[in-house]
Write a protein that binds this DNA or RNA. Structure first.
Lengths: 339, 339
DNA sequence: GATCTCAGTGTAAGCGCTTGCATTTGATTC
DNA sequence: GAATCAAATGCAAGCGCTTACACTGAGATC
């Protein structure tokens, strides 16, 4: 029946060990239910044949995969990479395997990836941010897949989440900036469409303005994709504009790094001529010259906690609860009172 | 038979559409073999039920998964993230899905992940570097999984690879350094054990010394894990040593960034007091102050080509051929003739 | 010594899908 | 209208595994 030298199956192992397939299966899954002597025999056969259980068959029969799926916008963004690494490590210690896909920020691809992971039998799912089609949420609900939203915190949503309040965090930074005496503020924001994190951060700055009686509608904002070079370009545009701001607040550290670079190229001193702030506190922030004032976010901690929470949801069939993490402002050399 | 409101199966779709399961299956896999009218009926039913094919069952029946697995040491390393993102994008355009796992540089975990991906029916595998247990290679061979090695180039290995010659690239940089007049050279290397890339880079520097009649055995080398902070610490140790080098060559940009940071903290000017070089040319390199002289590696290109090659191997059942990519030296402000 | 237990093992029924082969259908030809 | 044939569809056999249930036999109980 089996082709010569083909991949060994449970049957092969059973035959070699001289037991039934059920016993082999039990050796692999519930070893304590098999007597020592038999187990040794079986394990030897497994070893000898180089047997690996076929995952598909296993899933079909057992309905459990010990697999968690995660879909992130891109692996190229350090904050996701970092959080996900921690997520994976924690999952691993619980006996779960992580499968990662990236969507390149495209909702259609994300939907496809979600379906793919579900079809692969993921026991649970980690998604980034709330912003997505209602149909997808309905789909997840009907498939009854425990799903956790990370990198976002928002009350009153259907799915549990873990993250921090982007808006409030940025508002806090904005208020600091204003407290230092800045009045001419410009913003380089990440792309807001379909990205609740970027949107929240932008709104946070506007909130800060409002609190201090300034008009958020006159705030100059340039929106641009997550790339150092884009930050540089946007910064150039802003500084070549009619009214030079005293501070440029960026939606993330990568854009801020680009801004800083362009400032240097333009012969502007930071923070004497213009202050620059970021968001995320990636490693980069500390080694820039000058070091970047930014909002620190506990990415690793978030990844770890997300794993704990999701495993809990999967195993206890719980709905899961949302966790809010605290961010904090890191004051560094790139921000000072206006000169 | 089916529990109320459970996940819909092919049978459910067939029943609702009033056709056989075979027809539904064909609608999904070979639509041209089904007449328009039937297809519409079936697709409507699929839509209505929110049906997603069960992956495990599909694999079992069809023996093909259109899935490629990749195992990288860590997602936190920008070079892997970047290459992998390109890898995934290219795979996606060929209709394949990428599953990523990370091993945290631990061979045991890597072996486990390889088995896990194979068990999940990966049609092909992407691994980083050659350095691993022979048993694993034997296992892959017996499972007949097309495997491509990336981020490494070496002739005469069993498996095809795609990458560049770490050793020769670093040697080229080393010769440049020496040509500039440097004689007191120190090295901060990544951890060499089980990492052929780091090992090759270190050897490359020694080769350069040899070419210029210098003794590679007297080369001061500090080996330390991939972390900015470690680069800083190592740099401190080197500069506090008895003989200050005129140049510190680092095994990668991250270590170099740390070195640069510590240099600044120590009040040393780069490159006047000491030159620093890196390897990889990650984005970081360009925005450091001063910008880092480093070896540019086409990570995205490598990821893309790796995908093309691997798909070819999977579909044409070919053994695959190795591809050598060219690296190039990026001269920037952090390297100059000794002062 | 007969009866009862129960741990250890085997038997066999699926899990949801694909696909070779058999059958039906409907268009085409004579 | 009968005969022919290709296209469309249905039937049913697995794919490799888990697990409910049945069975076996050795020790415990009376």
């Amino acid at each position: 029946m089996s082709r010569i030298r083909s991949v060994p199956t449970l049957d092969d192992v059973a035959r070699v060990a001289g037991v039934s397939t059920a016993t082999v299966s039990r050796c692999l899954n519930t070893p304590h239910r098999v007597v020592e002597k038999t187990r040794t025999k079986v394990m030897t056969a497994v070893e000898e044949l180089g047997y690996t259980p076929n995952f598909g068959a296993r899933v079909m029969a057992a309905k459990r995969t010990y697999t968690i799926g995660a879909i992130i916008p891109t692996m190229e963004n350090a904050i996701f990479a970092r959080g996900l690494q921690a997520f994976q490590e924690e999952l691993h210690s619980h006996g779960y395997t992580l499968l990662v896909s990236s969507s390149a920020y495209r909702p259609d691809i994300e939907a496809e990836q979600i379906r793919s992971l579900v079809a692969r039998g993921a026991d649970g799912l980690l998604l980034i941010g709330y912003c997505r089609d209602q149909g997808l949420y309905a789909y997840l609900k009907r498939q009854a897949i425990p799903t956790l939203i990370a990198w976002a915190f928002s009350e009153g949503e259907d799915l549990p989440c873990i993250g921090f309040d982007n808006r409030a965090s940025m508002q806090a930074l904005g208020e600091q900036v204003i407290a230092l005496g800045h009045r001419r503020i410009a913003v380089i924001s990440g792309v807001v469409a379909g990205n609740d994190r970027a949107e929240g951060r932008l709104q946070g700055i506007k909130d800060a303005l409002r609190v201090h009686g300034m008009d958020p509608d006159t705030l100059p904002v340039i929106e641009t994709p997550y790339e150092i070079e884009n930050g540089a370009t946007a910064f150039g545009q802003i500084m070549d504009g009619p009214v030079r701001p005293t501070v440029v607040m960026c939606g993330n550290d990568v854009l801020a790094a680009g801004a800083l670079k362009r400032a240097r190229e333009m012969g502007l001193n930071v923070p004497e001529d213009v202050s620059i702030t970021g968001f995320d506190d990636i490693e980069l922030a500390r080694i820039l010259t000058p070091p970047l004032t930014t909002v620190h976010v506990p990415h690793r901690e978030m990844g770890r906690r997300a794993a704990v929470e999701l495993v809990e949801m999967v195993e206890r069939k719980g709905t899961g609860s949302s966790v809010q993490l605290q961010s904090s402002i890191r004051m560094r050399g790139s921000l000072a009172a206006p000169g």
